[in-house]
């Protein structure tokens, strides 16, 4: 079932960035799970200051053809809004970015994030800040990630939207210093995004978070099950088979059921014979165990031989002395 999407994304629009390639292609944003947690932690402060804008910098890598942006880290940048103008603490942004850059020299500023229900002129101003100047996304286009989770001051499920700012009007030649009225014009065009977990450990942690209840007082991951891991996995598979059997106990000829039947018959009916041939399985398993035991015995014997030989040598040498 494809994701429901109300917007279209065929190609990246023309952006006012000298580093952007001439050929247009589709773009996508990948958000690493730890970076998303950082972003959510930062934007959740919006609940405390509803009248104050919370923004931050997105860090990560981008492909040469700008087809892929990967957000790996994020930090908050203080900003103050007064009327139509906005002041961003550039010094904090630069300090934190330089600090990050020392540990991750290949990563760069990708853009910024915020939590807002609308896109307005201030959004354009902030986007302009991130699109121009050193230690920002320049000469590449900046991306904007919006986390919409407040509806009438009530917290709802965070909705992630990512945008790229298409240029509007006459192209500006060269780098412009300062904010001029005619340069912060953008069409914020949505681009697709997906949350990715980059390593196996992250996946395990995410699965644990999903399975365990979060609101318990003591949130301790149970690792005592490791000893009987095989049994637990066997039970998990058995319970899945039970669920599947219950599901297919009474089926009609709908298209979804036919797809399920096709999948099951293509993959199950020529199962490995060993799975159902228990005596053979038992014989192989005990043979394997015997092999392992034999190797253990041999190792032990050799070890004892070596120790014995060392002791004999030591005793012989000691006797020589007397």
């Amino acid at each position: 079932m494809p994701e429901q999407r109300s917007y279209m994304h065929l190609v990246r629009p023309n952006v006012a960035a000298p580093g952007a390639p001439a050929a247009n292609g589709p773009s996508t944003v990948k958000i690493q799970a730890p970076a998303l947690f950082q972003i959510l932690e930062i934007v959740s402060k919006q609940v405390l200051y509803t009248d104050k804008r919370i923004i931050g910098t997105l860090l990560g890598s981008r492909s040469d053809d700008l087809s892929e942006f990967e957000i790996k880290h994020a930090f908050m940048v203080p900003c103050n809004e007064t009327g139509d103008s906005v002041t961003i603490e550039d010094h904090t942004h630069k300090t934190l970015y330089q600090l990050y850059k020392k540990a991750h020299p290949k990563d760069a500023v990708l853009g910024w994030f915020g939590s807002s229900s609308t896109i307005d002129n201030t959004t354009g101003l902030i986007h302009d800040f991130y699109s121009k100047g050193s230690d920002r996304a320049y000469p590449y286009p900046a991306i904007y990630l919006n986390v919409d989770y407040l509806k009438d001051n009530r917290i709802s499920e965070p909705k992630l939207s990512t945008y790229i700012g298409a240029a509007v009007g006459k192209p500006v030649s060269g780098v412009q210093l300062g904010w001029k009225a005619n340069i912060n014009n953008y069409i914020f065009t949505p681009i697709p995004n997906e949350v990715i977990s980059s390593s196996v450990t992250e996946k395990i942690a995410l699965n644990n978070l999903r399975e365990k209840s979060v609101n318990t007082a003591s949130f301790v991951l149970d690792s005592a099950e490791d000893a009987s891991f095989l049994s637990a996995q066997l039970e998990a598979v058995t319970s899945n088979i039970d669920k599947l059997l219950a599901e297919i106990s009474n089926v009609d000829n709908s298209d979804a059921n036919l797809d399920l039947l096709r999948l099951l018959s293509n993959n199950l009916l020529n199962k490995p014979q060993l799975l159902t041939n228990l005596p053979e399985l038992e014989r192989l398993f005990s043979a394997h165990n015997q092999d392992v035991t034999l190797i253990e015995y041999l190792t032990k014997v050799i070890k004892e031989q070596i120790e014995l030989s060392a002791r004999l040598t030591a005793t012989a040498e000691a006797e020589k002395k007397y």
Binding site: S6, Y7, T118, I119, D120, N121, T123, G124, L125, H127, N146, D148, S161, V168, G169, A181, N182, N184, N185, Y186, I187, F188, T189, P190
Partner: peptide
Amino acid sequence: MASVIVVDNELKDS
């Protein structure tokens, strides 16, 4: 939110 145009100029300037 789909696409949004943000232009800081007056209509006359545009």
